[in-house]
Design a protein around this nucleic acid. Sequence first.
DNA 1: CGATTTTGACCTGCGC
DNA 2: GCGCAGGTCAAAATCG
Length: 146
Amino acid sequence: MGIDQALIDHNMVDVLDVEPSSRKRRENEVSNMIGTTRTRENDPIIIQMESKENNPDDGFSWKKYGQKLIRGNPNPRNYYKCTFIGCNVKKHVERGADNVKSLVIAYFGNHEHDAPVINNWSGSSMSQDPGNPSVRKATFIPLVSL
DNA sequence: CGATTTTGACCTGCGC
DNA sequence: GCGCAGGTCAAAATCG
């Protein structure tokens, strides 16, 4: 829960310093996490990272429903929607205008369901929450813990 | 065969 | 009121 907590704690955090070595990651996809940004609890969550993949698997199933070229960014932005029944969480994915390595993911809304497939979310950070059911509910960790 | 991706068109909000 | 930019939809095509 480190990241999510950080999101809430640093409500207006700009850049979250995350050490790559502190969490398991697939060297092949995510090389380094830059940080997360969230201006408000109800606002979209912006996640910035460095990745070779254009869409790292975050544990949920997304269906692409659009792609647009955004001004100020030579790279197209992709629009995804959660395929879970009854879940209308959306996500925008775009690459940095200058850094093709940097990936910016924006999440709109929170998943009110559990991840369809438990990948191994970096181990066991959230596997146990005996006295924290509320945390279990909002299993929305936009962190690429591959 | 079902689900997902692709691509263009369409719609809406904002600024001038 | 018009034009621009961004966001969404939908039909066809593709993949597993």
